[in-house]
Amino acid sequence: MRQILVIALNTFREAIRNRIFASIVAFAVGLLGLTLAVSAASLHEEVRLMKDVGLFLVSTFSAFLCVFVGANLVYKDIERKTIYTILPKPIHRWQFLLGKYLGVAAMMAVQVTIMGTALASQFWLLEERFSFVMVQAVWLIYVEVLVVSAVALLFSSFSTPFLSGMLTLGLFAVGRFADRLAEVRLKADAGEDQAVLDVASAAARGLSWLAPDLSLYNVTPYVVYDTALPAGFVAQATTSGVLYAALALGLAALLFSRRDFI
């Protein structure tokens, strides 16, 4: 346990001390403020649209950041050989990996909190009312980040940052549309071959099965219309996200435990 925490703390510190991280977060918050200001000034149903755009920005931005960080961190340790001095110490490889993950999770918690607070406080000023659904929505964005980071770490434990970044983004895109992909049943028009379309549909459904269902973490409509989420929804979505992340990390640990560090 202690070893995991030491790695996590160091990873967190590495990310926080990185100037790029600070400037990215500042940029994101700035962009958020600007977007909201512009839509407030120029549009009719401004508050609803602003919520939509705001949540989209926070979630997409957070996902991209954790893909970037997650895909880089472990790989960098291997590439730069810092890992050579860590793994021979009394630590299991899976502990190292889990520590890295928790470090990224902590860093992303900071990032999501900053952006979420910026977003929520804008609406608080605007509507003079605290919206609980908004907090739930930001929490679910964080759960999504936990899932995506785990996938990024899984890929980066055996491939380069570029490749693992691309793979993670691919899975992320599929995951966001997982609910729709799961329903895909293409129908042939005149002159088209139904068999080919059946294969394509099956592939789409298979992909949606493999990828995490990220549509679970998008509750924007509830925020926009300010309606309460169904009871137990957040708990359920959180559980399924944590399970998926655990699965991805378990697989990463398995691959990681077998490889040579050359």
């Binding site: 160091n10 510190r13 590495e14 001390r17 990185n18 730069r80 050989k81 810092t82 050579y84 001095t85 021979p88």
Partner: peptide
């Protein structure tokens, strides 16, 4: 056991 790798590289932020 203590170990020093060849051409070591460490976390630079520390």
């Amino acid at each position: 056991i203590g170990y020093l790798p060849e051409q070591p590289y460490f976390y630079e932020h520390l």
